[in-house]
Design a protein around this nucleic acid. Structure first.
Lengths: 343, 343
DNA sequence: CTGTTAGCGCTTTCAT
DNA sequence: ATGAAAGCGCTAACAG
């Protein structure tokens, strides 16, 4: 079943069939009609590869992510796919699992498939691999980890604004003993969030005394929180580098017989779906996957038209207040070791 | 950059290059060596489509799922991709979102891409669409919703065994007032689980008096549990049709001021990653994604060699006991309305 | 073991 | 507006 059979049946040339399929305007309505019918009758689907081979365009976009088991990414993938399919494009998803070797394999896959563009949504990316794409004139878009240049755009997330909103909320509730559970320091995005936190506290004249490192997964958050609770003085509020971490922290707090938010308030980052259903529902900073996906796809899709210049796109997170944050306890965490109301 | 340039550089024919790439054994080590070097020097990657066009095999497998935001599926996708990539195959993932229209689009995408086989892991599938594949001789594998026939295999999950293990565990803890929160009845797999539950209770002479329908999502589980708690008599244990549902139920129970497992025990189904980190950690029936993915891929990959007969593959779930189940409370849920210790 | 060559299914000039 | 024909990059007989 191919274009030739359709052509024969419609009594036209293959070129005309091709034109009809591609919506060329230089086909008489009558012949177009005839071809359409032949296509229907034969149940013909054009072979995408032959098409790509012939035209040089694959209608395929690559999407590289680092951890598909973090709900943030499936949600991103879903959005990205939706948008791509709406635009008649396909998506090839690759999951690197934070592994440089897998990353390399992913890149090769993309190259072999001759993708028309790649959205690199991991927080780390080998410069050499980037070159592989650029030397082949493949448009790229990064999530916060590149710079706008020829054929490559960059989405910059305003982490500082997100963290700031969270801290403002917390401080407004009377907290001054505020901890941060960071992501793995090998990840740029994690470092950025941490720095935003430290800077934000400093600006407000609050000490950043409780910082622990997690791994952006539930278990890391749990362990980091446990360490925090084991210290001599305890924070009354905790910001987590992402929601998975916050969920782990929530568990650790419960295990220690403390209550959220009565004893400790907690704020996540991302607003993954499940965060609305934790116990208690998590206050968090929403980073819209839908927005990221939309902007990323647009950036790739339009980059060639725009003369391939590449641009910067801003993405602003937004605070979502739920039940995991509340007023600071009267006797702050520190009180355990200090006589109350000394002054 | 193509096979021709490589051939020229290595001073051989394109055929020899092709043979080298494909690991044919009829190439002298020396020439092979020479070709390899040329490939390296040129940074050549074979064009997958041209390859597919030439050979008739796409090395692409389709994976259709119904809800990528349910963590069960990303984990399945991840496993499936891993295995495929290990075998030099690619995966095209399509998410139907339970929507028949999207399903149709997905099928067309697969057809156009000339996939070598499709794993259909949704719980519902239009027969007409199946025909589309079968009439094109494309191997299929279903998750519990097909039958073994020409070119199509079926993984059958022993839900009954899973439910049975859960009920046995619960009954062993002294519970007799056992509820079930089902999935949406429009889903075959949800119906099967529910029937397994009812049958299992009947076999043990226990009444199946508390059954509510959820939607396999957190909110549905939450609402169903709330309805259960609103009844005149309450169960002391609850089985959920999947973990998302169980997590929702957990939330509802907490909101009602009850404790898990002291007041109510709860068991999930699937064992998604996050279930180990809920508060308390969820006892659940594990349905291994890794196993499903592995078996599904094998089934597709080998179906042609086996004469295209198609087969049935069994998958057995296993109970994972964590902290959400405990001994039945002395005064059963019913006791609220019955005088205690009448007899 | 290696080269020659005819496709694979579609797009795209270039004529007409 | 339509057709003829030359690729696109690779594979797979078929020779040798």
């Amino acid at each position: 079943m191919n274009i030739k059979e359709v052509a024969r049946r419609a009594r036209v040339s293959t070129a005309t069939v091709s034109r009809t399929i591609n919506g060329s305007d230089k086909v008489t309505p009558e012949t177009k009609e005839r071809v359409q019918r032949a296509i229907e009758e034969l149940g013909f689907y054009p072979n995408t590869w032959a098409r790509a081979l012939g035209s040089g365009r694959s209608s395929l976009y690559g999407l590289i992510i680092s951890d598909i088991t973090n709900p943030f990414f499936p949600e991103l993938v879903k959005s990205f796919e939706d948008i791509a399919v709406q635009n008649g494009q396909e998506v090839l998803v690759a999951n690197t699992n934070y592994d440089p070797v897998r990353m390399e394999v992913c890149v090769r896959r993309m190259l072999q498939r001759k993708v028309d563009g790649v959205a690199i949504m991991t927080s780390e990316m080998d410069a050499r691999l980037i070159t592989e794409f650029q030397s082949r004139d493949i448009p790229l878009v990064f999530l916060d980890t590149g710079k706008a240049e020829k054929l490559t755009s960059n989405l910059v997330v305003d982490y500082a604004a997100g963290v700031d909103a969270a801290v403002e909320h917390i401080v407004g509730l009377g907290h001054t003993a505020i901890a941060f559970i960071a992501g793995p320091m090998m990840l740029r995005s994690a470092r950025v969030r941490r720095e935003a936190f430290v800077g934000c506290l400093k600006r407000r004249g609050i000490g950043a005394d409780w910082i622990e490192e997690g791994n952006h997964q539930v278990d890391g958050g749990h362990d980091a929180m446990a360490r925090l609770l084991g210290r001599k003085t305890r924070p009354t509020a905790v910001l987590a580098s992402n929601d998975m971490t916050a969920i782990g922290a929530l568990g650790a707090i419960h295990e220690h017989g403390l209550r959220v938010p009565e004893d400790i308030s907690i704020v996540g980052f991302d607003d993954i779906q499940i965060s609305a259903f934790t116990q208690p529902a998590l206050t968090t900073v929403r980073l819209s996957r839908e927005e990221i996906a939309r902007v990323a796809f647009r950036a790739l899709y339009s980059i060639r038209q725009d003369g391939g210049k590449g641009a910067e796109y801003g993405v602003k997170p937004a605070l979502v207040v739920r039940r995991s944050t509340g007023r600071a306890p009267r006797t702050a965490g520190k009180a355990e070791r200090e006589p109350a109301l000394v002054s």
